[in-house]
Design a protein around this nucleic acid. Structure first.
Length: 284
DNA sequence: TTCCATGTTCCGCA
DNA sequence: TTGCGGAACATGGA
């Protein structure tokens, strides 16, 4: 379920398992799952280097292929050094997880998981696999994540500490569409997907079809606060639904279930082409 | 067997 | 330019 919280968890997982370990070999078992780069470009960018830092923007995860294993991971959005693909900083591996992508690390001789599309074997015996059964994801290589974000026209990442209410308001300013489809639009905000946008609207009591221009100021502020809370709570729960609080929609996202907030019935309907779970008892 | 799914993109039409 | 419906992509699970 790779939306912003899931990818943030992948980032933390990559940081914990795979940084600063020299890459000995790279195997790419995918055509469709690649961006516009060849497997040899990916191998060349990674082999003989180490993943030295990671970043995330929206649903995209970037891992820098640095010259050695001792560079400090900068974490958030702060890394802005000039890109030099052949220099010590190297290029960045870019992973998009589509609907079913994930990361899996292991040690030693074990077999790679099913549907592995990219596998890194570290010189010290560590392994990292990017898996994706449905091949909707992308594996790419970029020189500069900031430039990639700009070229893709991605909106700001709402997880960032400096993404505030004023930013949220200005991103929604002038939007005429429904609130659900707008919040899911990666050019408006980068990171919310179908599951978490439903969660935010559910918790805040806002119906998904509501048009953005008719939302009152206090409703926008409420959505902003709830969005921040949902993202934080989901990451704290490692994006595992069964660890979510009992009164979250996503804990048991199922039609006909009784609403944990108001006792109404959870309904399911299509909103701008996406399956949408909603409680009409308290979402207005 | 049929339907559905967490994502993105492209086309056609307002 | 924006927004929406629909289709397409690929594959496993219910």
């Amino acid at each position: 379920m790779p939306e912003l919280p899931d990818v943030q968890v992948f980032k933390e997982y990559l940081d914990a398992t795979s940084l600063h370990r020299p890459v000995e070999s790279v195997s790419v078992q995918a055509e469709r799952v690649l961006d516009d780069v060849s497997p040899s470009t990916i191998r060349r960018a990674l082999r003989g280097r180490a993943l030295t830092a990671s970043r995330r923007h929206g649903k995209h995860l970037f891992a820098r292929a640095g010259a050695d294993g001792r560079e400090t991971n900068t974490g958030g959005e702060a890394d802005d050094s000039a890109p030099d693909p052949d220099g010590p900083d190297g290029r960045w591996l870019r992973l998009h997880f589509g609907m079913t992508g994930t990361l899996e690390a292991w040690e030693g001789e074990g077999e790679a998981p099913d549907h592995t599309r990219l596998r890194l074997d570290f010189a010290d015996g560590g392994r990292l696999a990017y898996t994706n059964p449905r091949r909707f994801g992308e594996i790419g290589v970029v020189d500069d994540p900031d430039r990639f974000v700009e070229e893709q026209g991605l909106g700001p990442d709402p997880w960032a500490d400096d993404f505030d209410l004023a930013d949220f308001r200005s991103r929604l300013q002038g939007r005429r569409g429904g609130v659900k489809s707008t919040l899911m639009n990666q050019r408006v905000l980068a990171g919310l997907g179908n599951v978490y946008v439903d969660e935010v609207l559910f918790q805040r009591g806002v119906a998904p079809e509501r048009a953005v221009p008719e939302l009152a100021d206090d409703e926008l502020e409420g959505l902003f606060r709830t969005m921040k809370d949902v993202l934080r709570g989901a990451v704290e729960a490692r994006a595992e639904r069964e660890r979510f609080p009992d009164d979250w929609l996503t804990r048991d996202r199922r039609e006909g279930r009784s609403c944990p907030r108001c006792g109404g019935a959870i309904g399911k309907r299509e909103v701008t082409g996406r399956a949408t779970y909603v409680c009409d008892g308290h979402q207005r």
